[in-house]
């Protein structure tokens, strides 16, 4: 975001350059052994993260995994029980003010004021970031344009759609050109169209080189936006890597077979024996799915056994594991239920 700002004075520019070189080797965000309990519940249980400048990091986890708790501690809204968070070298515990200046927060709990218009909401945020009246006003107008809200600028936020509201909130988070953008579940509760819009905007942000920490429960979202992902389950990071690494690490490939209803059971038996794991059966779509380590040979072998058993698959496909598969494998409860088959298929 910073590089789009025209240098005001040569002196300023030099300062910025020096600062950037000095800090470039150091991660912008560093979280070390972070813990937070509420009563007996360990909401965040020893989380380590570091986020280099210009990267997009996805924190992926189901509801209650501790994502929002981490964000709240990062945004200085909540004090950690132990551990340390630094943003641009500033510690949230000792320099909360500097941290607040460095981050732009948008998401679940950072709400817009319903009674104010879009323009007024952004003006308010700009002024509270310390901008002059004029700067706040022009910056608000600029952001409204960028987030396609210019026409709605003078309407009260209470009349905005969910997607517009989210865009307004996002605009507020980016208004002061923060070093670190924190997006807490940016598309939760949005309809598909608004979700696409929001993704597009975050995509632009990423293309411009912003540093973003994104939390989400949607795998597709993390896959699409984040360069690196950590999977959070019950307050702990259970896996991390690029989306591709994660997919490769768990499950490898999936064999997906559709058969007539009456042959579902036999098919499941054959595939189970073949892959040495429990296949997922989706009776509605008459589909059986199983994780296989070596896709091609598994496919050939399956076809041979189907022919032996006299089964003629209606459809048969080999696909790479999606993040959904990874996610479910990683966050699954210790006691596996054969019935969760239906949930597996999107």
């Amino acid at each position: 975001m910073n590089n789009e700002r025209p240098p005001r004075r040569p002196v300023d520019n030099d300062d910025n350059t020096n600062q950037d070189t000095r800090k470039s080797g150091e991660p912008l965000l560093r979280i070390q052994s972070l813990c937070k309990s509420f009563g007996d519940t360990r909401a965040v249980d020893g989380v380590d993260l570091s986020l280099p400048r210009g990267s997009v990091f996805g924190l992926l986890g189901p509801n209650g995994a501790g994502k929002t708790t981490i964000v709240r501690m990062l945004a200085t809204l909540l004090r950690p029980d132990s551990g340390r968070i630094t943003v641009g070298g500033h510690d949230t515990a000792t320099e909360p003010e500097a941290v607040r200046r460095s981050i732009g927060l948008s998401g679940q709990f950072a709400s817009v004021d319903e009674k104010l218009t879009g323009a007024e909401n952004l003006y308010l945020v700009g002024r509270l970031y310390g901008m002059s009246r004029r700067t706040a006003r022009s910056r608000a107008a600029e952001m409204l344009g960028r987030f396609r809200l210019t026409e709605a600028a003078d309407r009260r936020a209470q009349h905005y759609s969910g997607g517009m509201r989210r865009r307004l909130d996002l605009a507020g988070a980016l208004l002061a050109r923060p070093e670190l953008v924190v997006l807490d579940e940016p598309t939760t509760g949005l309809d598909p169209r608004s979700r696409m819009d929001t993704w597009e905007i975050i995509g632009e942000l990423v293309a411009e080189g912003a540093t973003v920490l994104l939390t989400t429960q949607y795998l597709e979202e993390a896959d699409r936006l984040a360069g690196r992902i950590a999977v959070l389950s019950a307050g702990r990071i259970v896996e991390r890597g690029t989306p591709d690494q994660l997919k490769a690490r768990t499950g490898g490939q999936r064999l997906d077979v559709t058969v007539p209803s009456e042959e579902l059971e036999v098919t499941a038996g054959i595939l189970g024996a073949l892959a040495q794991s429990t296949p997922a059966v989706d009776p509605v779509n008459r589909r059986v799915e199983v994780a296989v380590p070596h896709g091609r040979s598994a496919m050939t072998e399956a076809l041979r056994r189907f022919a032996e058993a006299g089964i003629e698959p209606l459809d048969m496909a080999l696909r790479r594991a999606t993040l959904d598969d990874v996610f479910l494998a990683l966050t699954e409860e210790p006691s596996p239920e054969p019935d969760r088959a239906g949930e597996l298929t999107p």
């Binding site: 945004a75 200085t76 809204l77 607040r100 709990f109 950072a110 709400s111 004021d113 970031y129 310390g130």
Partner: peptide, 12 residues
């Protein structure tokens, strides 16, 4: 309504 949270995250 979460407005206080928004303010608390601002450098004000």
């Amino acid at each position: 309504r979460g407005f206080v949270d928004r303010l608390r995250a601002l450098p004000m």
